Amino acid sequence: MSHVLITGANGFVGRALSGALLRGGHATTGLIRQRGGCLTGTQEWVHTGKNYAGLAEAWPAALQVDCVVHLAARVHVMQDVASDPLAEFRATNVDGTLRVARTARAKGVRRMVFVSSIKAIAEADAGRPLREDAPSRPQDPYGQSKYEAEQALIQYGNESGLEIVIVRPPLVYGPGVRANFLRLMTAISKGLPLPLGAIRAKRSLVYVENLADALVHCVTEPRAGGQCFHVADGDDLTVTELAQSLARHLQAPARLLPVPSGWLRLAGRLTGRSAQINRLIGSLQVDTSHIRTVLGWRPPYSTDQGLAATARWYRATH
């Protein structure tokens, strides 16, 4: 069994991954900034150095790790108040990531799994599901920083011998989800009318437990070394279908107004929210055939099962 160090182990994906690894008999250590929040059974290591400054010096002498899964990041935000957002994203998502990689290699770690984002290559699929070798055209500082981190890790891995595995999930949902997905559930549960009844474009999603299962494969499978994988549920839905399914599981009415996409785009331009509207109504499907072929991975849960679990959590906690 492996000993896995997880950055951000007390976060949304980190807790799911810790649980999957522990159930598989692996040892887990969480590298976190504030104590608390890790699953029982995960050893906590608190390091407060900004962007992992001083990580090598702080590494516990007794800590021997086989693989690092790097989840911690400066995440995408809708209204970024930083004076230079790209510089802030680079400091954390590129420089900080490389600092983790270099420290891991110096401490004898053999593999690093980097959880990137589909935003590292695109915001839309241009008519066909995105493969791992699609041209990279990130559209915002977050996506740009994730793409640059991927490239820096690949170069470092080639130079040092550290095995790099890159995973690009689309939108991740599940119990504990935040941001836009949580706001959508809140609006539906309150019975609010939403202009989502006529959206035909499909978007890939990944249930957090499916992502965790895929990451376990990336940690443990020898064939994963040096690979890049897109991971998704495989049951791609339109936003209309997503809202209808959530309403059913939330036991709430689906009050979806059939507003044409053109009208939504116009509203986006008039309100300065074109990027948000385009993400809502545009097609973004990912091709997961590579991880299925190389690692034999199949998502253990369907999208409907994932949405049902997410709705149960919401009803129990809100």
Score class of each variant (00 low, 15 high):
residue 222 P to A: 11
residue 222 P to Q: 10
residue 222 P to E: 13
residue 223 R to Q: 14
residue 223 R to V: 12
residue 223 R to T: 14
residue 225 G to H: 11
residue 225 G to M: 00
residue 226 G to E: 09
residue 227 Q to N: 10
residue 227 Q to L: 01
residue 227 Q to H: 11
residue 227 Q to G: 14
residue 227 Q to D: 12
residue 227 Q to R: 08
residue 228 C to W: 02
residue 228 C to F: 12
residue 229 F to P: 00
residue 229 F to L: 09
residue 230 H to E: 07
residue 231 V to G: 01
residue 231 V to H: 06
residue 231 V to L: 07
residue 231 V to K: 07
residue 231 V to R: 06
residue 232 A to H: 01
residue 232 A to P: 01
residue 232 A to S: 13
residue 233 D to S: 13
residue 233 D to M: 07
residue 234 G to L: 04
residue 235 D to Q: 14
residue 235 D to Y: 11
residue 237 L to A: 08
residue 237 L to E: 02
residue 237 L to G: 00
residue 237 L to R: 03
residue 237 L to H: 03
residue 239 V to E: 05
residue 239 V to C: 08
residue 239 V to D: 00
residue 239 V to L: 12
residue 240 T to A: 02
residue 240 T to W: 03
residue 240 T to C: 09
residue 240 T to S: 11
residue 240 T to K: 03
residue 240 T to N: 09
residue 241 E to T: 06
residue 241 E to F: 05
residue 241 E to V: 01
residue 245 S to Q: 14
residue 246 L to M: 14
residue 246 L to K: 06
residue 247 A to S: 14
residue 247 A to E: 04
residue 247 A to F: 03
residue 248 R to W: 00
residue 248 R to K: 15
residue 248 R to H: 10
residue 248 R to M: 10
residue 251 Q to I: 14
residue 252 A to S: 15
residue 252 A to I: 09
residue 252 A to V: 10
residue 253 P to N: 13
residue 254 A to W: 06
residue 255 R to I: 10
residue 255 R to L: 12
residue 256 L to C: 04
residue 256 L to M: 10
residue 257 L to F: 11
residue 258 P to V: 06
residue 259 V to D: 04
residue 260 P to M: 11
residue 260 P to E: 14
residue 260 P to N: 14
residue 261 S to E: 15
residue 261 S to K: 14
residue 262 G to R: 11
residue 262 G to K: 09
residue 262 G to D: 13
residue 262 G to P: 08
residue 263 W to F: 15
residue 263 W to K: 00
residue 263 W to N: 05
residue 263 W to Q: 12
residue 263 W to P: 04
residue 264 L to N: 08
residue 264 L to R: 06
residue 265 R to W: 09
residue 265 R to S: 15
residue 266 L to Q: 11
residue 267 A to D: 01
residue 267 A to F: 04
residue 268 G to Y: 03
residue 268 G to T: 04
residue 268 G to P: 08
residue 269 R to L: 05
residue 269 R to N: 12
residue 270 L to N: 01
residue 271 T to Q: 07
residue 271 T to C: 08
residue 271 T to F: 03
residue 272 G to R: 04
residue 272 G to Y: 03
residue 272 G to N: 04
residue 272 G to F: 06
residue 273 R to W: 04
residue 273 R to S: 05
residue 274 S to N: 06
residue 274 S to W: 02
residue 274 S to E: 05
residue 274 S to I: 08
residue 275 A to Q: 13
residue 276 Q to A: 15
residue 276 Q to S: 15
residue 276 Q to N: 12
residue 277 I to F: 03
residue 277 I to R: 02
residue 277 I to S: 06
residue 278 N to C: 14
residue 279 R to H: 13
residue 279 R to D: 11
residue 279 R to V: 01
residue 280 L to C: 02
residue 280 L to S: 05
residue 281 I to K: 07
residue 282 G to E: 00
residue 282 G to K: 03
residue 282 G to M: 01
residue 283 S to P: 06
residue 284 L to N: 04
residue 284 L to G: 00
residue 284 L to Q: 02
residue 286 V to L: 14
residue 286 V to H: 07
residue 286 V to Y: 03
residue 287 D to R: 08
residue 287 D to N: 15
residue 287 D to S: 13
residue 288 T to H: 05
residue 288 T to Y: 08
residue 288 T to Q: 09
residue 289 S to W: 07
residue 290 H to P: 04
residue 290 H to I: 00
residue 291 I to R: 01
residue 291 I to W: 05
residue 291 I to L: 11
residue 291 I to P: 03
residue 292 R to M: 08
residue 292 R to G: 11
residue 292 R to K: 14
